[in-house]
Computed example of a mutant assay.
Amino acid sequence: MKKHYSVAKEELVFYGNENTSLQNVLAMLIGPKAEPSVTGELAGLGAKTLSSMTAEDFKKYEGVGELAATRILSAFGLAGILNKFSKEERYVVRSPEDAANYFVDLAHHNQEHFEAIYLNTKNQVVARKNIFKGSLNASLVHPREVFREGLKVSAASLIVAHNHPSGDPSPSSEDIQVTKRLVESGKMIGIELLDHVIIGDCGKFTSLKEKGHC
């Protein structure tokens, strides 16, 4: 008897991405250890519930290890990004969680990426810009580079974010220093820094606004 993974792979090739079941997609993501009873139970939860689960939640199921859990999280992260950019309406940021979800793709980089999104008066994202790649240093994050794009698109506010490749989103003294510098610059320029979000792994993040630094 063929393993669940092999059957799912064949059906995916035969029926195509659009017509395969969520259960088969999960089997492909879990790999050769996938059991139909497990993928069936997970599929029964629905895509919405699965997209809100953590790696630890997935690892409670038989055959789902660290790598498989990461694959599933990555798949839902990519789906969220594609869905975000396929919508005609602009993404609205109402909370630190919204900002973290927008920047979820940063979690997959193996070096630090410092980026900014620029918002209008309705907190809709009107632009996104990569400021630099590499270890975060206050001297590299010059307010001129951060706010230049904001002035171009007449932004009312902005949110910056960067990832910690270690997976731990705890802020460093350098992170706090950069945040305070941008807050002061924003006051002078007239574009408010709403938050600085640090992205970790497995959906973890830290909002420096919630920490009182914005």
Rank of each mutant, 00 (worst) to 15 (best):
K204Q: 08
D98H: 01
A55Y: 07
E56I: 10
E210A: 05
G190F: 02
G44R: 05
K129P: 08
D195V: 06
M28Q: 10
K2C: 03
L26D: 14
Y5S: 09
V125W: 01
A127E: 12
P96I: 03
A161V: 08
D175Y: 00
A100F: 00
S157D: 03
P143F: 04
S166T: 14
S173Y: 03
N19Y: 12
E112P: 03
I176Q: 08
K209T: 05
H213A: 05
E89L: 08
L208R: 03
K211V: 00
L140Y: 07
P36D: 12
G40A: 09
F132K: 13
K59C: 07
G190E: 02
K180W: 03
L26A: 14
T54C: 04
K180N: 07
G186H: 07
G150I: 02
L158C: 11
L194I: 14
Y61S: 15
E88A: 10
E210M: 11
G186N: 10
A138I: 08
P143I: 01
T206E: 09
E56F: 09
N110A: 10
F205N: 08
V197G: 11
P32V: 05
K3C: 04
D168N: 15
A27Y: 09
K9P: 01
V13Y: 11
K9R: 12
R144V: 11
C202R: 15
G31E: 01
R181A: 09
V104L: 01
E149C: 08
K2S: 07
N130I: 06
H196G: 06
R71T: 07
E62I: 06
I198V: 05
V38I: 15
S207E: 04
N24K: 13
V7R: 10
A43K: 11
A27M: 04
F114D: 13
G203F: 01
A79V: 04
N123R: 15
L119N: 15
E145S: 12
C202K: 14
E97M: 06
V178R: 05
I191A: 13
